[in-house]
Structures are given as structure tokens and as C-alpha cells.
Design a protein around this nucleic acid. Structure first.
Lengths: 353, 353
DNA sequence: CTGAAAGCGCTTACAG
DNA sequence: CTGAAAGCGCTTACAG
């Protein structure tokens, strides 16, 4: 405010170089120092081939000397497009999502885009708040986990007019574009595989949350496989939003107590499965001889446990990259691919089943 | 552009309500609909007590009906302060940092701040690029992992004039403020504890990277404890930036090959320790009878392995919260605490040593 | 309690 | 290849 006004006066009067601690350098300063106008500095940054080589040199030198960092806030307001992408995931503590985010944000940064990330804690209402906050930054695109959202979330997405990608799921009626895989199909095939391998009393372990459509889809897949084969369905769950390892142990305990003849458990996540694996070891249960255990995700840990975990590999890094790439093309207006993109999954058989 | 101009004309001519898909609602529209000027709408949002209750009601109603989302980009440019905080961590895949980030970003969002996160992949040069990118958004504050950075990174921090917090370390000469704990002291005490518990040939396992000052500090602490006690120092490492579980197994292998009489290994991270634990199990080695293993971090998994992991608990969530709180006070200009904040650590003895 | 004017630092859309 | 003018959607600093 006052400081800025003084700075302006200074640059109009004498040579630059004494920018105060708070007075960050503007294009104007660069322009003066290189004997052009701000317009040409702007061009040098955005379309350098439209500026003469000598001018370019001078400008670049000035930028370097003054440590000029272009103000994206001003640029975004002016051009009505911000190179920013907003993402909401249920949790970062779950490595499945942190890997996804890491890959996505790296891909986006390579193209000059900044990623803002919010954690909804598996809560649709909180996802709505995050989105509303993020939309204030007028992002160029939005990526949401799952396909179930509050009405207001959907309404805000529509009104915003920006490209939306939903991910980690598959649906036939995405808000805009969906990139993921069928959770139901994946759990179905995992369960089918167990049946093929000779298991008969197959339980399901998960954390119940009406907000987690992925989890519920997986449960549906497990149920479908058993029903088709004419087997009983017995599941066990803990309540709450977190996917603590501990919960896996509790589920194993509960399931074996209620249905002692259970010979396999399909878990809705690797974290739960690893928890169950550890609990089995503590009890002296042999896996898979006494009880088979399968996970979902194929996190790094899955191949290292003893016994190594049989699981469903989901393409989490690939999902991050593809979401970024498709979104970028949507933003550029050059996307002409399908609205539903299925990246599949893979059953990985190791030792635990 | 053209669309915007048409939209303006529209709103000047007739009643509002037909905003196009791209034409997001502005304060101007809210003002017209509630019979005031944009200035009053701005007040209603920022200092509602300075607006008459009736006016406030009308404005809020209009905001709701039109689905107005204030444009932070314009607000930031105008007020010369953005409610945005930039953070750089080495990796999100490491749960130690994702927990930290989750806590920090939640704390910041509660106060109306948005967090932008970048992953440096344990690379100082890449940290510099991320920072330079982030500074373009004119964040209100910056949080950096570690205390070792490139010269240009430090220079940019100074020039930016925004509050900087370094974390996960302790140093006497922070760029601005440092909030963390002494990695050297923590590893020293872990090693001392092992000595007290009767171990004599204590190795150190870590991933070598000159960019990771935390790791090197921990190694120094281990060495110091052994040297003071007059014992030999034998370490083993793998090269590279990642903290894969696999590396822990490789380190165990190498260390036992080169120094078969090793009776304990201090690991620089829980991930490595868990990898070693699994490898020991695969080889039929008893932990801690044949070999003791300790970790660093106390991640969720640490208490669930069999045997449960003895480790150093670092206050990662607390660090996230405190970084956010201190930064917020620095931004507000009300911080008068120390420049060096030590949040300590804790040796957690379980079964693996 | 409310408003008119000016400005934040860029980019767009011309013009030359 | 370069520049002058206008404007992006808000907030600041008055004034009433």
C-alpha cells in the first residue's frame, strides 16, 4: 500500500535496485531496466520467439539480476485462466492416494501447472467445503475421488464451467469425465479366483462408510461372486472413516469368532489385509493353510510381508498421470476421447491365498 | 473475453440469472441483485458486522441464489496478500510426510488458507524449481523440509520477504524459523538405549543421499554414541533417493554378510526397519534374539509388525499443526516466539530390540 | 452504514 | 518486432 506507492515513485525517479524486503519486483522494473515496456517483458516470458534476440537477452539479464518472479495471481486474473488444478482425495495417509497425487502433481508441474490438494477424510460434506474453497482460486480443472458427492458439490461443479474428472471409480454417468476401474469387477474377480483356488467360506472385511462408494462397490463384487457360485456371504466390518492397520486385526478376530469355519477373507484394502496378516501371525494361524487373506491395492508393503500378499493391483500412479494428461487436454480444448476411461486392474497371486 | 463483455452488457440491461456456463458470477451481479454496490458485498463477506442486518440478508440470499464463489485471485491481487501457503516435502509416498501434510493443511484450511504442496524427491535442485514456481503465487508463507537448500533457494526466500519455516530438523541458524527436533540426538539416544540393553555390535542402515540432511544427522548420532562407548562403527547403506521397504532387506543382507557378528541394527527409517524385519523372518532369524532391529518415525505399521518395532517416535502430526500455527502468527505479525523450536522425540521400546 | 475512485500486476486486443 | 489503452474482479483508503 504505502510501501508500494513509494516503490513506484522510486522507480520513476532513479535507477532500480533498491527494492525493499516486501516490495517484490514487477514487470515494470524489468521493463525499465531493459529499455522496453512491460508488454514486451510479458511477451519475452510467454512468446519469446516474438521478441528480437537482443531485446530478449537484455530482458533475461534483468530478470536474473533482479530475481524477478512473475506474479501468477495477476496473470491469472488478467488472462482469466489460472494454471492451477484442484484435487480432492479422501486421505493422504493412505499410500494409495499419496502415490496417485505424487504422480499427478509431478505430471502437472512439468506442464507448468500447480496442484492444490485437499483431504476430505472420506466425508462428502467436507469434500464440498474443500471444493467451494478451491473454486475461489478459479482452477483450470478439478479432480475428485469417487463418483458420489453432495448435490451442492455437483451443482458447484456444473456452475464452475471447468473440466471435472472423477477417478478411482467407474460409472456410466460421470459429471464430466471419469477415469478409473470397476471396483465391483475387481473384487468379483478376486473372489472368483479364491473360489477357483478351492476356498469355500469366503468372508469380506472392510471399513463401513456410506461415503466410500469404492468400498461398497467392492463388497458388492464379493457378494455377487459368492451368490453366483451358491455360497454363503459372511462379512465383517469396523465403522469409521480410517483405514488403520489395527482394524484389519479386529475384523479377523470378529469374523473368526462369528464364523469359525471361514477359510478365506477378501479385504477391501491392503492396509486391512496386512493388519489381519500380522494378527494371524500373533495367533499362530498359518496363512494361507488355516486362513487365506487377500488385499486390495498392491501397495509397496504387499509384496514384502511374510507370506507375501495376494491382492488386486490398481493402477494408482498411472491413474495420476492419465488424470493429469486428460485434464490438460480438456483445458486446452483438444480432448476428443471418451467420457468413461477404464484403466483396469490385475489380480496378483502371491502366497497369502 | 468476448463472452465476458456480452455478460457485462447483459447484466447492465436486464435482470441477472442467465450467466453462461463460463461466465462465473461476480460481486457486481450480487450487488445489483441486492441493490447495493460491490463494495458493500465485499464488506458483507469480510466484515459482516459493518453491514446492516437487512442488507446482509439480501446479499446472502443473492449469493446463495446465484451460487457466487468469491474470486480469491482478484482478492489476492487487490489486497496484496494471498491466503495460500506453499510447502515442499521430499516425498508424499513416505507416510511420515503425508501425515505431516495432512495435519498442516487441515489446520490451515480451518483458518481459511489453502495449501499448495510440492514433492522434491529428496533433490535440492528440484526443491528450488518447486519454490520458484510456488513463489509466483505470492504465498503468504513457505514451509520447507530440512535445513539444507541450494544457494538460489535461500536467495529466493530472502527476496520474497515472506515468512519461511524449515522443519523436521534443528539448526541454530535457520533461514527464518525452524520447527523440528534433533535427528542426531534422536539416533544417539536410540543407540545409547541399545547399548544399555546389552547390544555391542550395532550397525546402521540408511539410504545415502547427500541431499538428505536428516539421514546424515541420524548417522552422526549413531556414530557418536558408539564412539563414546568405545565400540566399532559398521554401517551399511543403499544408494538412491527412495525409502523402499526392499532396501531394508538389502541392507540387512549386506550388513550380515560383511559383519556376521552384528547383533543390532539402527535404521534411519521405519520403512527400512520393517523391510529388514520381513527379511529376517524369511531367513528364519529371530528378532531380537539373533538380531535386534530399531526404526525411526513410529509410523502406524511399527506397532503392528511381529515382533512390534522398537523405534523413535517423531511428532509428525504435531509438527504439521505447529508449523501451521506459527506460520499463521508470523503472517499476522503477532509472532514473538523463538526462532528455534524443538518439539523433541521419544524412544519407544517394543519387542524388536 | 454505504459508496465513488483508484489501483493491485499482469494480459488481451488492437495499432503501427 | 514493439507499444498504448483498457480491463480482469476484487480491496484500500478515503468521504459522506
Amino acid at each position: 500500500m504505502a510501501a508500494r506507492k513509494i516503490a513506484k515513485k522510486r522507480s520513476a525517479v532513479g535507477p532500480v535496485g533498491n527494492e525493499g524486503p516486501k516490495g517484490s519486483v514487477r514487470m515494470q522494473e524489468i521493463a525499465e531496466r531493459s529499455g522496453v515496456t512491460a508488454m514486451t517483458v510479458s511477451r519475452a516470458l510467454r512468446t519469446p520467439n516474438k521478441v528480437s534476440p537482443e531485446t530478449l537477452d537484455r530482458i533475461r539479464k534483468a530478470i536474473d539480476e533482479l530475481g524477478f518472479v512473475p506474479n501468477f495471481v495477476a496473470g491469472s486474473l488478467s488472462s482469466r485462466q489460472s494454471r492451477m488444478v484442484a484435487v480432492s482425495v479422501p486421505s493422504l495417509a493412505n499410500s494409495v492416494f499419496s502415490d496417485f497425487i505424487e504422480e499427478m502433481s509431478t505430471t502437472l508441474m512439468d506442464k507448468g501447472y500447480t496442484t492444490i490438494v485437499g483431504c476430505s477424510s472420506y466425508d462428502h460434506k467436507y469434500e464440498e467445503e474443500i471444493l467451494s474453497e478451491f473454486l475461489g482460486w478459479r482452477p483450470a480443472g478439478v479432480i475428485l475421488t469417487g463418483t458420489s458427492h453432495t448435490e451442492r458439490t455437483k451443482e458447484m461443479c456444473r456452475r464452475s464451467g471447468v473440466p471435472i474428472i472423477e477417478t478411482w471409480c467407474k460409472t456410466n454417468k460421470p459429471l464430466d469425465i471419469v477415469i478409473g476401474f470397476s471396483n465391483q469387477r475387481a473384487a468379483y474377480e478376486m473372489t472368483r479366483s479364491l473360489i477357483d483356488w478351492g476356498y469355500r467360506k469366503i468372508g469380506f472385511g472392510y471399513v463401513a462408510s456410506e461415503n466410500n462408494d469404492r468400498s461398497m462397490e467392492r463388497r458388492r463384487g464379493w457378494k455377487k461372486a459368492l451368490t453366483e457360485a451358491g455360497y454363503e456371504c459372511q462379512d465383517s466390518r469396523t465403522r469409521g472413516g480410517s483405514f488403520a492397520i489395527r482394524e484389519g486385526a479386529m475384523i479377523l478376530d470378529k469374523l473368526l469368532k462369528e464364523h469359525p469355519d471361514t477359510d478365506a477373507i477378501v479385504f477391501g484394502s491392503d492396509t486391512l489385509a496386512v493388519g489381519a496378516l500380522m494378527e494371524a501371525q500373533r495367533r499362530g494361524l498359518r496363512v494361507p493353510e488355516d486362513i487365506a487373506i487377500t488385499g486390495f491395492g498392491d501397495v509397496e508393503m504387499a509384496s514384502e510381508t511374510v507370506p507375501a500378499l495376494t491382492t488386486v493391483r490398481t493402477p494408482r500412479r498411472e491413474l495420476g498421470r492419465v488424470c493429469a494428461e486428460v485434464l490438460l487436454r480438456k483445458i486446452a480444448g483438444t480432448y476428443d476421447g471418451p467420457r468413461v476411461i477404464d484403466r483396469g486392474f490385475e489380480i496378483v497371486r502371491r502366497q497369502s491365498a
